[in-house]
Design a protein around this nucleic acid. Structure first.
Lengths: 355, 355
DNA sequence: CGTTGCATCCAAAGCGCTTTGAAAGTGAGT
DNA sequence: ACTCACTTTCAAAGCGCTTTGGATGCAACG
């Protein structure tokens, strides 16, 4: 008996077979399962029980063909051909989004595309009817993909924003400018005057905004920005280490460092250790913390003073906004600006007295 | 003119429309595009040009329905409901796999499932016809999902292996046992006798194998294993820190630590720093390095002595093996065992003289 | 000139579902 | 008894593709 049920659960059964077993038409069975009102409660129960028993699952391709919707959302991972870098926030963002997708009955489809073929990847995904909407990640300044997606007419949401693009579009972003403004001001208030910025790649929109916040805070405090103290590259540990190390050897080294990610902050920390400096006492460090699941910023007391904003949460919200957009394609563009939280940890302290 | 072409590129055109434009039947157009021989070279060229010009892309759902294949491969991310942890290797593994999928014309579909519904997730993915094959990640000892997938008849490959499962199945794995055996022996050769193991979760198959390698090396050297020095949990930075810290406070603390991931090794390093110990001099550390793109183990000289094996490469190979399996469902089970490379960095050194 | 064989092309069926338009059944109202 | 208004069910069309089983035309052959 168990055998039979298990066998049934493993077999692929289709509507036709199921309706024959039930002695009903495909129409009725379909309606019963999809909750249409034109079917009596009795038969509905009977149909659902049979579907359950035989492990019937509507073929999603057929369903998609018939309904014109694929119930799939596309993500494109731009795997930079040069550095082969996968953004570490990727996993958590996707996990958040996927959770919401599942909730609303959507699947998530990925495509890997190198820098040169990203547009093509989106186009293919949508025009083949493979997805109902897409997520655009890691927008640059003047991001050209936004216009492309607009023209294609595919519902989409941007994780981040793009300075210079003035057509309206949906986005969700952290307030990078205010985060870094606050972080910088916090350091200034602690007496720091030589504050370094170890930022992400310059053409990334978030990096621009963070720098803007940083510069604004300096300006408000009447401090001049020193180009020597502003670095930018892909946010790896090695890079954080390398730049810090370089700056610590300057004639007039920084007493505080702002890092655009926890990963590069770990590199900063390593450079400090190597230089025999104690983080929080000799040099203060503030990191931006995406609250990644495998890289929590300490347990009770945070390791790093940080501007924190959960990227997983952003993924969830992005998913919801996109699904809303798919449902109402003609609504006005929506956006959501998340404020990062400034958590104070052990990595910051008053500026040391120069001997 | 450009306008027209762009418009065409953005519109969704179907086979029927295209064949009408060409004055050919759908059959011929379809055959021309799919490389069948029953079509003259002249018309083939004409058809391809028209398809190109009008931006025709066959609807993948319709195609799937007709062919019975979806050209999609499924991954399930088990988002542990308790700790909400996303495996950091996830991104790189997927990037590797997705690249190969694209090469062979496959798409990649994700599903998020919590611990309790993973089986259901796989079942749904396959029986709905949404995927042609699936990848099983993070197998535990006696992994029950393997039998489930076998019974369902879905082509699959396991990233890792599962001790205790004796039915044959496809897998690709790093030789965890030999890696950790060599790493441990390396430490023993340096004179270390108190060697700690900071491992992954105990029920994970890879963790068992690593421990086996570690124990074997100790045994070969005639050393007794101390349960106090063997820890296991989810491989976060915080965990690496916490366990190291605990062990360093033991009466007879370890002089060397093996860490199951770079992330936890970073936590180990932090604990050493806090304790005022210098890594490589006071305490040696060896980490397992998945060669993640954002967490390279130094540039020229590795930071950590490590057992290295690229998880991105594993993703690529897994993809190829799975595609092969889909093509030949009845071939005998295949497997691939990758040997990790032992790279010597700055984190190891001879055992210090106890004072 | 009638066949044969081959190269091209096509009409139509079918993949598994949803949905339209209609038919059959049921009970109330006159 | 007969109509009316539902309720419940169904047959068939259609989604966009592939593929089967011809049809057509043409050159070559006897």
């Amino acid at each position: 008996m168990l055998q039979i049920i298990e066998g049934a659960l493993n077999s692929k059964m289709n509507l036709k077979q199921l309706s024959e077993i039930l002695g009903l038409s495909q129409t009725t069975v379909s309606r019963a399962l999809n909750g249409y009102p034109e079917v009596s409660e009795g038969t509905r129960v009977r149909v659902q029980a049979a579907a359950q028993k035989h492990g019937y699952r509507p073929n999603s391709r057929a369903k998609g063909l018939a309904t014109g919707r694929s119930m799939v959302i596309g993500h494109v991972i731009p795997s930079s051909s040069q550095h082969e870098m996968v953004n570490p926030i990727f996993g958590d963002f996707v996990a958040g989004a996927a959770r919401k997708y599942a909730e609303y009955g959507y699947d998530l489809m990925f495509t890997n595309a190198d820098d040169t073929s990203i547009e093509e990847a989106y186009r293919s995904l949508f025009q083949r009817g493979a997805v109902d909407g897409v997520v655009l990640q890691g927008p640059k300044v003047n991001e050209p993909r936004i216009a492309v997606l607009k023209r294609m007419g595919v519902p989409f949401i941007v994780h981040g924003r793009s300075t210079g693009v003035d057509t309206p579009y949906d986005w969700i972003d952290v307030n990078n400018k205010s985060s870094f403004l606050r972080a910088t001001r916090f350091l200034i208030d602690l007496g720091h005057r030589r504050i370094a910025l170890i930022n992400g790649l310059e053409d990334m929109d978030f990096a621009q905004r963070r720098r803007a916040g940083y510069l604004e805070a300096l300006k408000q405090a009447g401090l001049a920005a020193d180009p020597e103290l502003m670095r930018s590259a892909e946010m790896t540990e090695v890079y954080g280490h390398h730049e810090s190390r370089g700056m610590l050897q300057l004639e007039n080294p920084p007493t505080a460092i702002l890092a655009s990610s926890m990963i590069s902050a770990i590199g900063v920390r390593r450079a400090l250790d190597e230089a025999g400096l104690k983080m929080g006492r000799d040099v203060s460090v503030i990191a931006h913390d995406d609250d990644l699941s495998y890289l929590k910023n300490g347990q009770d007391v945070p390791i790093f003073t940080a501007t924190r904003s959960s990227v997983r949460h952003a993924g969830e919200m992005a998913a919801e906004m996109l699904i809303e957009r798919i449902k109402f394609p003609d609504d006005a563009a929506k956006s959501k600006l998340l404020e990062a939280e400034l958590v104070v940890g052990r990595s910051t302290g008053p500026v040391p007295n120069r001997t």
